[in-house]
Design a protein around this nucleic acid. Structure first.
Lengths: 193, 193
DNA sequence: ACCTGAACACCGTTCAAGT
DNA sequence: ACCTGAACACCGTTCAAGT
Protein backbone atom coordinates (compact mmCIF):
# COMPACT_ATOMS: atom_id res chain seq x y z
CA UNK A 1 0.00 0.00 0.00
CA UNK A 2 1.42 3.35 -1.04
CA UNK A 3 1.47 6.21 1.44
CA UNK A 4 -1.19 8.01 -0.55
CA UNK A 5 -3.44 4.98 -0.13
CA UNK A 6 -2.76 4.92 3.60
CA UNK A 7 -3.84 8.52 3.97
CA UNK A 8 -6.97 7.86 1.93
CA UNK A 9 -7.76 4.69 3.87
CA UNK A 10 -7.50 6.61 7.13
CA UNK A 11 -9.93 9.25 5.90
CA UNK A 12 -12.46 6.71 4.64
CA UNK A 13 -12.41 4.67 7.84
CA UNK A 14 -12.56 7.78 10.02
CA UNK A 15 -15.53 9.19 8.13
CA UNK A 16 -17.49 5.98 8.51
CA UNK A 17 -16.88 5.95 12.26
CA UNK A 18 -17.81 9.60 12.75
CA UNK A 19 -21.03 9.18 10.76
CA UNK A 20 -21.93 6.14 12.84
CA UNK A 21 -20.78 7.16 16.33
CA UNK A 22 -19.72 10.78 16.34
CA UNK A 23 -16.46 12.71 16.24
CA UNK A 24 -15.73 12.21 19.93
CA UNK A 25 -16.16 8.46 19.63
CA UNK A 26 -13.43 8.33 16.99
CA UNK A 27 -10.26 6.78 18.45
CA UNK A 28 -6.82 7.02 16.85
CA UNK A 29 -5.94 3.61 18.22
CA UNK A 30 -9.08 1.91 16.89
CA UNK A 31 -8.62 3.71 13.59
CA UNK A 32 -5.00 2.54 13.41
CA UNK A 33 -6.11 -1.06 13.91
CA UNK A 34 -8.63 -0.80 11.06
CA UNK A 35 -6.03 0.70 8.74
CA UNK A 36 -3.25 -1.65 9.81
CA UNK A 37 -0.74 0.80 11.24
CA UNK A 38 0.16 2.07 14.71
CA UNK A 39 -1.65 5.06 16.15
CA UNK A 40 1.53 7.15 16.03
CA UNK A 41 1.42 6.76 12.24
CA UNK A 42 -1.99 8.40 12.07
CA UNK A 43 -0.37 11.41 13.69
CA UNK A 44 2.18 11.46 10.87
CA UNK A 45 -0.62 12.25 8.40
CA UNK A 46 -2.82 14.21 10.79
CA UNK A 47 -0.84 15.80 13.63
CA UNK A 48 -3.92 16.24 15.83
CA UNK A 49 -7.43 14.86 15.89
CA UNK A 50 -8.61 18.36 15.00
CA UNK A 51 -6.55 18.23 11.80
CA UNK A 52 -8.17 14.93 10.87
CA UNK A 53 -11.65 16.23 11.73
CA UNK A 54 -11.17 19.40 9.71
CA UNK A 55 -9.96 17.49 6.66
CA UNK A 56 -12.87 15.08 7.03
CA UNK A 57 -15.38 17.93 7.05
CA UNK A 58 -13.67 19.74 4.17
CA UNK A 59 -13.58 16.62 2.02
CA UNK A 60 -17.19 15.86 2.81
CA UNK A 61 -18.28 19.37 1.87
CA UNK A 62 -16.18 19.38 -1.31
CA UNK A 63 -17.52 16.03 -2.48
CA UNK A 64 -21.07 17.16 -1.76
CA UNK A 65 -20.60 20.38 -3.71
CA UNK A 66 -19.19 18.46 -6.69
CA UNK A 67 -22.12 16.08 -6.69
CA UNK A 68 -24.71 18.81 -6.25
CA UNK A 69 -23.20 20.82 -9.11
CA UNK A 70 -23.56 17.84 -11.40
CA UNK A 71 -27.15 17.39 -10.27
CA UNK A 72 -28.12 20.97 -11.04
CA UNK A 73 -26.25 21.00 -14.36
CA UNK A 74 -27.83 17.72 -15.46
CA UNK A 75 -31.24 16.83 -16.74
CA UNK A 76 -34.45 16.82 -14.77
CA UNK A 77 -37.10 19.06 -13.31
CA UNK A 78 -36.67 20.90 -10.03
CA UNK A 79 -38.78 18.19 -8.40
CA UNK A 80 -36.55 15.45 -9.77
CA UNK A 81 -33.31 17.17 -8.82
CA UNK A 82 -34.62 17.83 -5.33
CA UNK A 83 -35.58 14.17 -5.00
CA UNK A 84 -31.99 13.18 -5.85
CA UNK A 85 -30.72 15.66 -3.26
CA UNK A 86 -32.93 14.13 -0.58
CA UNK A 87 -31.79 10.67 -1.68
CA UNK A 88 -28.24 11.52 -0.59
CA UNK A 89 -29.42 12.05 2.99
CA UNK A 90 -31.54 8.93 2.83
CA UNK A 91 -28.55 6.92 1.65
CA UNK A 92 -26.66 7.71 4.86
CA UNK A 93 -29.45 6.11 6.89
CA UNK A 94 -29.52 3.11 4.58
CA UNK A 95 -25.81 2.71 5.23
CA UNK A 96 -26.10 1.16 8.73
CA UNK A 97 -28.23 3.99 10.14
CA UNK A 98 -25.46 6.55 9.65
CA UNK A 99 -25.99 10.27 9.59
CA UNK A 100 -24.74 13.10 7.45
CA UNK A 101 -21.29 14.07 8.75
CA UNK A 102 -22.51 17.63 9.10
CA UNK A 103 -25.41 16.73 11.39
CA UNK A 104 -23.22 14.69 13.70
CA UNK A 105 -20.60 17.38 13.95
CA UNK A 106 -23.12 20.18 14.44
CA UNK A 107 -24.50 18.29 17.44
CA UNK A 108 -20.99 18.10 18.92
CA UNK A 109 -20.26 21.70 17.95
CA UNK A 110 -19.43 22.89 21.47
CA UNK A 111 -16.55 20.42 21.71
CA UNK A 112 -15.16 20.91 18.19
CA UNK A 113 -11.76 22.48 17.46
CA UNK A 114 -12.02 25.79 15.62
CA UNK A 115 -10.70 24.41 12.33
CA UNK A 116 -13.39 21.73 12.32
CA UNK A 117 -16.13 24.27 13.03
CA UNK A 118 -15.10 26.29 10.01
CA UNK A 119 -15.42 23.31 7.69
CA UNK A 120 -18.77 22.37 9.24
CA UNK A 121 -20.11 25.89 8.66
CA UNK A 122 -18.95 25.72 5.05
CA UNK A 123 -21.09 22.63 4.47
CA UNK A 124 -24.31 24.23 5.64
CA UNK A 125 -23.56 27.40 3.68
CA UNK A 126 -22.94 25.34 0.52
CA UNK A 127 -26.24 23.48 0.93
CA UNK A 128 -28.22 26.66 1.47
CA UNK A 129 -26.58 28.32 -1.54
CA UNK A 130 -27.32 25.35 -3.73
CA UNK A 131 -30.94 25.00 -2.60
CA UNK A 132 -31.51 28.71 -3.16
CA UNK A 133 -30.20 28.37 -6.72
CA UNK A 134 -32.34 25.31 -7.35
CA UNK A 135 -35.51 26.99 -6.11
CA UNK A 136 -34.94 30.44 -7.62
CA UNK A 137 -36.73 29.77 -10.94
CA UNK A 138 -39.80 28.56 -9.11
CA UNK A 139 -39.97 31.57 -6.79
CA UNK A 140 -39.48 34.71 -8.88
CA UNK A 141 -41.61 36.56 -6.32
CA UNK A 142 -39.05 36.06 -3.53
CA UNK A 143 -36.15 38.41 -2.97
CA UNK A 144 -32.75 36.94 -2.27
CA UNK A 145 -33.09 37.03 1.53
CA UNK A 146 -36.47 35.28 1.47
CA UNK A 147 -35.22 32.69 -0.95
CA UNK A 148 -32.27 31.94 1.30
CA UNK A 149 -34.53 31.75 4.34
CA UNK A 150 -36.63 29.17 2.52
CA UNK A 151 -33.52 27.21 1.50
CA UNK A 152 -32.26 27.30 5.09
CA UNK A 153 -35.59 25.99 6.38
CA UNK A 154 -35.54 23.12 3.88
CA UNK A 155 -31.98 22.17 4.77
CA UNK A 156 -32.80 22.21 8.48
CA UNK A 157 -35.95 20.17 8.00
CA UNK A 158 -34.04 17.48 6.10
CA UNK A 159 -31.29 17.37 8.71
CA UNK A 160 -33.93 17.08 11.41
CA UNK A 161 -35.73 14.31 9.57
CA UNK A 162 -32.47 12.41 9.40
CA UNK A 163 -31.73 13.02 13.08
CA UNK A 164 -35.13 11.81 14.25
CA UNK A 165 -35.25 8.87 11.84
CA UNK A 166 -31.83 7.62 13.01
CA UNK A 167 -33.05 7.84 16.59
CA UNK A 168 -35.97 5.62 15.58
CA UNK A 169 -33.72 3.40 13.51
CA UNK A 170 -36.47 3.44 10.92
CA UNK A 171 -35.91 4.76 7.43
CA UNK A 172 -39.66 4.86 6.79
CA UNK A 173 -39.84 7.58 9.42
CA UNK A 174 -37.51 9.63 7.20
CA UNK A 175 -39.63 9.03 4.12
CA UNK A 176 -42.78 9.92 6.01
CA UNK A 177 -41.32 13.21 7.17
CA UNK A 178 -40.04 14.16 3.70
CA UNK A 179 -43.50 13.37 2.32
CA UNK A 180 -45.07 15.59 5.00
CA UNK A 181 -42.73 18.47 4.13
CA UNK A 182 -43.81 18.18 0.52
CA UNK A 183 -47.48 17.92 1.41
CA UNK A 184 -47.24 21.05 3.54
CA UNK A 185 -45.64 22.92 0.65
CA UNK A 186 -42.31 23.48 2.41
CA UNK A 187 -40.33 21.49 -0.14
CA UNK A 188 -40.75 20.39 -3.74
CA UNK A 189 -42.54 17.05 -3.94
CA UNK A 190 -40.92 13.96 -5.31
CA UNK A 191 -42.39 13.06 -8.68
CA UNK A 192 -44.26 9.74 -8.68
CA UNK A 193 -42.22 6.85 -10.01
CA UNK B 1 -24.42 19.30 51.21
CA UNK B 2 -26.71 16.32 51.73
CA UNK B 3 -26.25 13.20 49.55
CA UNK B 4 -29.48 13.91 47.79
CA UNK B 5 -28.11 17.31 46.83
CA UNK B 6 -24.93 15.71 45.58
CA UNK B 7 -26.84 13.39 43.30
CA UNK B 8 -28.93 16.26 42.00
CA UNK B 9 -25.89 18.47 41.50
CA UNK B 10 -24.24 15.73 39.46
CA UNK B 11 -27.28 15.43 37.20
CA UNK B 12 -27.58 19.16 36.66
CA UNK B 13 -23.90 19.62 35.84
CA UNK B 14 -23.86 16.57 33.58
CA UNK B 15 -26.92 17.72 31.65
CA UNK B 16 -25.38 21.12 31.00
CA UNK B 17 -22.21 19.52 29.66
CA UNK B 18 -24.01 17.04 27.42
CA UNK B 19 -26.22 19.77 25.96
CA UNK B 20 -23.14 21.88 25.26
CA UNK B 21 -20.58 19.30 24.12
CA UNK B 22 -22.24 15.93 23.73
CA UNK B 23 -22.51 12.72 25.74
CA UNK B 24 -19.10 11.46 24.69
CA UNK B 25 -17.43 14.69 25.78
CA UNK B 26 -18.78 14.23 29.30
CA UNK B 27 -15.96 13.22 31.65
CA UNK B 28 -16.49 11.73 35.13
CA UNK B 29 -13.31 13.43 36.32
CA UNK B 30 -14.29 16.87 35.03
CA UNK B 31 -17.78 16.37 36.39
CA UNK B 32 -16.36 15.40 39.79
CA UNK B 33 -14.31 18.60 39.89
CA UNK B 34 -17.39 20.71 39.16
CA UNK B 35 -19.39 18.97 41.86
CA UNK B 36 -16.54 18.93 44.38
CA UNK B 37 -16.06 15.19 44.87
CA UNK B 38 -13.71 12.56 43.47
CA UNK B 39 -14.63 10.71 40.30
CA UNK B 40 -15.03 7.43 42.19
CA UNK B 41 -17.89 9.09 44.09
CA UNK B 42 -19.79 9.72 40.88
CA UNK B 43 -19.69 5.97 40.35
CA UNK B 44 -21.31 5.53 43.76
CA UNK B 45 -24.45 7.25 42.45
CA UNK B 46 -24.16 6.10 38.85
CA UNK B 47 -22.22 2.84 38.48
CA UNK B 48 -21.48 3.42 34.80
CA UNK B 49 -21.60 6.34 32.42
CA UNK B 50 -24.51 4.59 30.72
CA UNK B 51 -26.48 4.68 33.97
CA UNK B 52 -25.88 8.40 34.24
CA UNK B 53 -26.78 8.97 30.59
CA UNK B 54 -29.97 6.96 30.86
CA UNK B 55 -31.10 8.83 33.98
CA UNK B 56 -30.25 12.12 32.28
CA UNK B 57 -32.42 11.25 29.28
CA UNK B 58 -35.28 9.93 31.46
CA UNK B 59 -35.30 13.02 33.65
CA UNK B 60 -35.17 15.26 30.61
CA UNK B 61 -38.11 13.47 29.00
CA UNK B 62 -40.12 13.43 32.24
CA UNK B 63 -39.60 17.14 32.87
CA UNK B 64 -40.54 17.91 29.29
CA UNK B 65 -43.72 15.85 29.52
CA UNK B 66 -44.72 17.60 32.76
CA UNK B 67 -44.20 21.00 31.24
CA UNK B 68 -45.99 20.12 28.00
CA UNK B 69 -48.97 18.75 29.92
CA UNK B 70 -49.28 22.03 31.75
CA UNK B 71 -49.09 23.90 28.47
CA UNK B 72 -51.87 21.93 26.85
CA UNK B 73 -54.06 22.06 29.97
CA UNK B 74 -53.59 25.80 30.35
CA UNK B 75 -55.02 28.78 28.52
CA UNK B 76 -54.30 29.80 24.99
CA UNK B 77 -55.02 28.99 21.39
CA UNK B 78 -53.26 26.20 19.53
CA UNK B 79 -51.04 28.85 17.96
CA UNK B 80 -50.11 30.25 21.35
CA UNK B 81 -49.41 26.87 22.90
CA UNK B 82 -47.30 25.86 19.92
CA UNK B 83 -45.32 29.09 20.24
CA UNK B 84 -44.54 28.22 23.86
CA UNK B 85 -43.48 24.75 22.78
CA UNK B 86 -41.07 26.19 20.23
CA UNK B 87 -39.80 28.63 22.86
CA UNK B 88 -38.46 25.69 24.89
CA UNK B 89 -36.18 24.68 22.02
CA UNK B 90 -35.20 28.30 21.46
CA UNK B 91 -34.27 28.66 25.12
CA UNK B 92 -31.61 25.93 24.82
CA UNK B 93 -29.86 27.96 22.12
CA UNK B 94 -30.12 31.12 24.22
CA UNK B 95 -28.40 29.22 27.02
CA UNK B 96 -24.85 29.38 25.60
CA UNK B 97 -25.79 27.84 22.25
CA UNK B 98 -26.82 24.56 23.84
CA UNK B 99 -29.02 21.96 22.17
CA UNK B 100 -31.93 19.86 23.25
CA UNK B 101 -30.52 16.81 25.05
CA UNK B 102 -32.46 14.61 22.68
CA UNK B 103 -30.89 16.09 19.56
CA UNK B 104 -27.37 15.69 20.88
CA UNK B 105 -27.93 12.11 21.93
CA UNK B 106 -29.72 11.14 18.71
CA UNK B 107 -26.63 12.33 16.80
CA UNK B 108 -24.42 10.08 18.94
CA UNK B 109 -26.94 7.24 18.77
CA UNK B 110 -24.53 4.68 17.31
CA UNK B 111 -22.26 4.95 20.34
CA UNK B 112 -25.00 5.03 23.00
CA UNK B 113 -25.54 2.24 25.56
CA UNK B 114 -28.85 0.47 25.11
CA UNK B 115 -30.42 1.95 28.25
CA UNK B 116 -29.69 5.47 27.01
CA UNK B 117 -31.18 4.71 23.62
CA UNK B 118 -34.45 3.66 25.21
CA UNK B 119 -34.79 6.92 27.10
CA UNK B 120 -33.91 8.90 23.99
CA UNK B 121 -36.60 7.10 21.99
CA UNK B 122 -39.13 7.85 24.73
CA UNK B 123 -38.49 11.57 24.36
CA UNK B 124 -39.24 11.66 20.66
CA UNK B 125 -42.33 9.49 21.14
CA UNK B 126 -43.60 11.82 23.87
CA UNK B 127 -43.12 14.87 21.68
CA UNK B 128 -44.91 13.31 18.74
CA UNK B 129 -47.81 12.18 20.96
CA UNK B 130 -48.17 15.61 22.44
CA UNK B 131 -48.00 17.42 19.11
CA UNK B 132 -50.60 15.06 17.66
CA UNK B 133 -52.94 15.83 20.56
CA UNK B 134 -52.35 19.55 20.19
CA UNK B 135 -53.07 19.55 16.47
CA UNK B 136 -55.99 17.09 16.48
CA UNK B 137 -58.77 19.69 16.90
CA UNK B 138 -57.43 21.65 13.94
CA UNK B 139 -57.24 18.63 11.65
CA UNK B 140 -60.48 16.66 11.98
CA UNK B 141 -59.95 15.50 8.39
CA UNK B 142 -56.78 13.56 9.25
CA UNK B 143 -56.83 9.99 10.51
CA UNK B 144 -54.59 9.05 13.41
CA UNK B 145 -51.68 7.87 11.26
CA UNK B 146 -51.68 11.05 9.16
CA UNK B 147 -51.91 13.21 12.25
CA UNK B 148 -48.94 11.45 13.77
CA UNK B 149 -46.98 11.78 10.54
CA UNK B 150 -47.62 15.49 10.62
CA UNK B 151 -46.57 15.68 14.27
CA UNK B 152 -43.40 13.73 13.50
CA UNK B 153 -42.52 16.08 10.65
CA UNK B 154 -42.99 19.11 12.88
CA UNK B 155 -40.85 17.64 15.63
CA UNK B 156 -38.08 16.79 13.16
CA UNK B 157 -38.21 20.22 11.56
CA UNK B 158 -37.80 21.92 14.94
CA UNK B 159 -34.91 19.64 15.92
CA UNK B 160 -33.28 20.35 12.57
CA UNK B 161 -33.73 24.09 12.98
CA UNK B 162 -32.00 23.87 16.32
CA UNK B 163 -29.18 21.74 14.91
CA UNK B 164 -28.48 24.10 12.01
CA UNK B 165 -28.87 27.26 14.11
CA UNK B 166 -26.39 25.98 16.71
CA UNK B 167 -23.93 25.26 13.91
CA UNK B 168 -24.31 28.87 12.80
CA UNK B 169 -24.19 30.09 16.38
CA UNK B 170 -27.03 32.41 15.43
CA UNK B 171 -30.39 32.28 17.12
CA UNK B 172 -31.93 34.43 14.40
CA UNK B 173 -31.33 31.53 12.04
CA UNK B 174 -33.59 29.45 14.28
CA UNK B 175 -36.31 32.12 14.30
CA UNK B 176 -36.08 32.46 10.53
CA UNK B 177 -36.53 28.74 10.04
CA UNK B 178 -39.50 28.51 12.41
CA UNK B 179 -41.08 31.43 10.58
CA UNK B 180 -40.52 29.68 7.27
CA UNK B 181 -42.16 26.48 8.58
CA UNK B 182 -45.20 28.50 9.57
CA UNK B 183 -45.29 30.37 6.28
CA UNK B 184 -45.19 27.10 4.37
CA UNK B 185 -48.11 25.78 6.41
CA UNK B 186 -46.14 22.97 8.03
CA UNK B 187 -46.59 24.32 11.56
CA UNK B 188 -49.00 26.62 13.35
CA UNK B 189 -47.81 30.21 13.14
CA UNK B 190 -46.82 32.22 16.16
CA UNK B 191 -49.46 34.83 16.94
CA UNK B 192 -48.17 38.41 16.62
CA UNK B 193 -47.21 40.00 19.91
C1' DA C 1 9.43 9.83 3.58
C1' DC C 2 7.19 6.87 6.50
C1' DC C 3 6.74 4.15 10.62
C1' DT C 4 7.27 2.79 15.50
C1' DG C 5 7.80 2.01 20.89
C1' DA C 6 7.74 4.33 24.85
C1' DA C 7 6.33 7.89 27.68
C1' DC C 8 2.97 11.56 29.30
C1' DA C 9 -1.44 13.10 31.23
C1' DC C 10 -5.95 11.95 30.35
C1' DC C 11 -10.34 8.60 30.40
C1' DG C 12 -14.14 4.99 32.65
C1' DT C 13 -14.18 1.39 35.87
C1' DT C 14 -13.25 -1.49 39.94
C1' DC C 15 -12.30 -2.36 44.60
C1' DA C 16 -10.40 -2.52 49.01
C1' DA C 17 -10.21 0.72 52.57
C1' DG C 18 -11.76 4.48 55.17
C1' DT C 19 -15.52 7.36 57.92
C1' DA D 1 -24.37 5.41 53.69
C1' DC D 2 -21.04 7.90 51.49
C1' DC D 3 -16.37 8.82 50.03
C1' DT D 4 -11.59 7.89 48.55
C1' DG D 5 -6.72 6.35 46.61
C1' DA D 6 -4.80 3.25 43.82
C1' DA D 7 -4.81 0.28 40.08
C1' DC D 8 -6.34 -1.27 35.32
C1' DA D 9 -6.79 -0.75 30.31
C1' DC D 10 -8.05 2.85 27.55
C1' DC D 11 -7.34 7.77 25.13
C1' DG D 12 -4.59 11.84 22.23
C1' DT D 13 -0.07 13.53 21.84
C1' DT D 14 5.00 13.85 21.59
C1' DC D 15 9.43 12.40 20.36
C1' DA D 16 13.56 10.01 19.80
C1' DA D 17 14.75 6.18 17.10
C1' DG D 18 14.38 3.22 13.28
C1' DT D 19 14.07 2.13 7.92
Amino acid sequence: MTPKDTRETILIAAQATVQAKGYNALSFRELAKEVGVKSASIHYYFPTKGDLGAELARRYADNAVDYFEKLIAGDGSIDEIFARYVAVFRAALENDNRMCLYGVMAAEYGDLPQAVRGAVDAFSAANVDWLARLLAPRHPELDDASLRARALAIFGAIEGAQLVARGRGDIQVFDQMIEAYGAAGLTPRSPPR
